[in-house]
Nucleic acid binder design. Structure first.
Lengths: 159, 159
DNA sequence: TTGATAGGTGTTACATTATATCATATCAAG
DNA sequence: CTTGATATGATATAATGTAACACCTATCAA
């Protein structure tokens, strides 16, 4: 067990399940989960934190899976497009999706002290936002809901 | 009258009122609304759209108010810190606040076709988000709620 | 078998966005 | 008048992101 997000959980299982789910999804959809793409997904899941594109690139370089910026961006773009990862605008960074498979409008809590990022269910928020957009005739295609602050772990350390 | 956001409004009045309100605020708070800062605020209000930092810098250069990146970033940071402008994470850009003075948790609707950005009241969203954060003990300091899609004007042009 | 297409990757080069740092200027308070 | 706080000038560089083109491979149709 290791600390992930604000809590501990059985991470090995979590990772294995997610990767298998993604593999199945790609097979169904006729998508190619190539070695680079799969490895980037694993990286994101392993630490369960936000990675910058160049941080991902660094890992790919170490492992001989790519050497230039586009390699990382292409893999990340694929994962985001398929909903396996999310882009955190505030951080210019990427994180594995905590609830793949499910349809969801995610919201993120970003700790400015420890940099941890937690995905919280944003369904209600999403529908509220959509309702507001409707009233002015705006059609939402993608929503980013990101809150920055202090997570419970860092808050208790302060005290 | 010119088109602003998705609608027309009396822009000259809007601009004058906002600038005066900001001047008053700075006087009250002992803040310096220096020429650069004031001019950047005016720029943002004039077009009522999102400006990149380097676009702002270009204007400052034309007007002899600054010549290097930090000049623009410093002015923009000041305006954002005081709540006179907002940063649109999705666009790496800045926009004048539509409701200065009022306390608000703004949400933004960003048209991917015409790049217009509209600020909508996000109070309800903000409180919902805060409630969710509370349940895990996270203390929010700043929230960014941004939706990308198609605005009514561009939607009707498509048709 | 050939050729055409599509998707993925390698590579170069460049564009865009942002910040660290140190020097200088200004002004008000002690 | 000097000290401290705040703002600005200037240089350099870091960090993030993309356009464009070449090449490879698999698939599929002629």
């Amino acid at each position: 067990m290791k600390t992930v997000g604000f809590e501990r959980h059985d991470h090995d299982t979590c990772q294995a399940l997610t990767v298998r789910a993604v593999e199945a999804h790609c097979k169904r959809e006729g998508l190619q989960l190539t070695p680079v793409r799969k490895r980037v997904l694993e990286l994101l899941i392993e630490d369960h934190r936000a990675f910058g594109a160049y941080e991902v690139l660094g890992r790919l370089q170490e492992e001989g899976l790519g050497s230039h910026a586009p390699a990382a961006y292409r893999a990340l773009d694929f994962l985001v497009a398929q909903g396996f990862a999310h882009r955190i605008e505030r951080l210019n960074a990427f994180i594995a999706c905590s609830h793949p498979a499910e349809q969801h409008a995610p919201a993120f809590l970003i700790c400015r002290a420890c940099k941890s990022v937690v995905e919280t269910p944003g369904v209600e928020l999403g529908s509220k936002l959509e309702a507001q957009a409707d009233t002015v005739g705006f059609r939402i295609e993608h929503a980013a809901i990101e809150a920055e602050g202090i997570c419970p772990n860092c808050a208790s350390e302060d005290a």
